[in-house]
Design a protein around this nucleic acid. Structure first.
Lengths: 191, 191, 191, 191
DNA sequence: ACCTACGGGACGTCCCGTTTAT
DNA sequence: ATAAACGGGACGTCCCGTAGGT
């Protein structure tokens, strides 16, 4: 279907250049369609951008959250998630769409923001669930607050992306990985 | 001097809306000057944006790095820095200019990027120095790599900004603070 | 059509303020369009000014040259033309566009000048024709040179406009009318 | 005196290009002075333009109104004035300053307008005086209104300037001359 | 689905009249 | 009297997002 093809071509552009930095002209060139062809499928640039973000979010989610059922331990799941996040390259150019949208659509464009919020919320809930399950199983100390761990986990990962991006090298990501590994291991009861 | 006045008025605008999201028309309205008055002082929008970023960077630096000489201990210095970063509100609207520029000027605008890189580099060097001094004084375990700590420190802080911004609440920042406090205390020799 | 609407709004402005005295900004305000909207229809201010002059010329022509076929006599036609010129107010603010352009676009702007020249030429030819017809019919003395009469006729009328404008009252126009009436009557064979 | 030199250089420029069409830059180049040098003598462009117009007016007056005392007859004086007006080239480039200012400073610039009004008024009064003297001496019919004659005289002359300027040839001026000659001769009592 | 027309508006250059410092 | 700085603002190009016609 053409609509889907447009979304797939537009997603990396919006992700790399931001909403106002990516023009419909850019999308035209990427898809080979004309203005009219685009507006046939999306009533506005905004609508296209939202669909593109949704697509980008689910694509990166698919890349990071693979089947974790092979791991029985909560901390092993978390260690695996960190490793994947750090090692698996972003499936779409421009890096984490959550991060990009958080900054790009700060005040303007609340619709885009809402989609990103939803994506973040989903990610966080999954993490909290893992920690919570670890507590229930006795693997993780009951003192630990799942929300705090999830927040710190995501913050460290996303922040390392920011630093790496600015520096143009992956050192900060590897340092974040190592730090998170220590943090995760320290969650273990009596750890 | 008019030039400085323009920079001070433009800095929050660029910080909030990004380079392409902030028009010279916006700056005109904020300063009360006309096109001619603006372009007399800056040869291009780019040049103004760079000066505005430099100003924003030094303003936030001033807000975060106050005199640390009252603290004799490295970890106490770090705890204080975290607290300030979390508690002191950004001196200019739009939040951390480092973060904003890292995302906004990702590929395009290498000149802006370079200024932000420099800012990040300065911040990191100061942190590494503190850790290094702690190692030398015996306060911090010699196993610790100053670079890794600095990277994780900054990543967690910046990442918590991203999450907080997207969520519209400060929970993630406070969680990051608590997590960093634990991390910092764990640096202590035999800690 | 937008193009025509722009011309009609711009014509009085250019006629009143002259080419360099009327800015595109003025036209923007008068039409409610923005730069882009204007320059879509006219490739330059010059082109718009020319169309506006053409429009102004034909509007004033329509006002002055009404159907003369009800008059069988040449001198009656001329008397009627004088009366209309003096009595009928200019259809567009700023007065006679021929006069305005002759002075405004003296050296600069030969393109505008050319349009005005053409307008003058048309006017003069019509007058010469009337005089010539009067000679052929025997109403007007064969000694009379149509060109001289036409020139004097137009000169007196336009000159009275200049004087009236400077004085801010219509006395000079009425005096010109009376003088031309005497002149016209004196053209009659044996008059 | 420098001031006078500036006026003499500026007068032809303002006369040719109009107030807004002649820039201080143009005056700088014509005088060889710098901006500051100009503003030392005139507090504004407006003030300079007024002085330049005054100078232009008196220069053209000098050229047209020479000593008429050698003529004893009113109509001969008038014929001589017409001849001079038509034949003597304008002492300053750009033609009749009265005409130029009447159109150029129509609504804007009332100060300039006032100076031109004064110039016109002086010219008209002199003509009316001549006609009036002719009536008193019995040369001119008592029926004649001096004001009407003066107005028609000036209108025809100025109007012929307009036509000539637009056409780029002097035919209209010569035709106006001939027509005025006939008109003047017809003023004679019993003429 | 293409193509063209539409109006919006940012950008940056240029030059203007004026002021100030020297 | 010079020279530089100042702020104002017109101009025209370019490209944007959108709407219709074909």
């Amino acid at each position: 279907m053409t609509r889907q093809r447009i979304i797939e071509k537009a997603a990396p552009l919006f992700n790399q250049r931001g909403f106002s930095g990516c023009s419909m002209q850019d999308v035209m060139e990427a898809t080979g369609l004309e203005k009219g062809g685009l507006y046939r499928h999306f009533k506005s640039k905004q609508e296209l951008a939202i669909e593109a973000l949704r697509y980008a979010l689910s694509a990166t989610n698919d890349a990071h959250f693979v089947d974790l059922s092979t791991f029985s331990s909560a901390t092993e799941k978390m260690l695996y998630l960190v490793a994947r996040f750090i090692e698996v390259p972003s499936p779409l150019p421009g890096g984490c769409p959550l991060l990009n949208t958080a900054i790009d659509a700060d005040d303007s464009n609340p619709a885009l923001r809402a989609v990103a919020q939803q994506g973040l919320s989903g990610w966080k809930l999954r993490l909290e669930k893992i920690v919570q399950d670890g507590i229930v199983s006795g693997e993780i100390s009951a003192q630990i607050e799942p929300r705090r761990v999830a927040n710190a986990f995501i913050a460290t990962l996303e922040g390392s992306l920011v630093v790496s991006r600015l520096e143009g090298k992956r050192t900060a990501m590897r340092d974040a990985q190592k730090t998170l590994e220590i943090m995760i291991k320290s969650l273990r009861s009596g750890g």
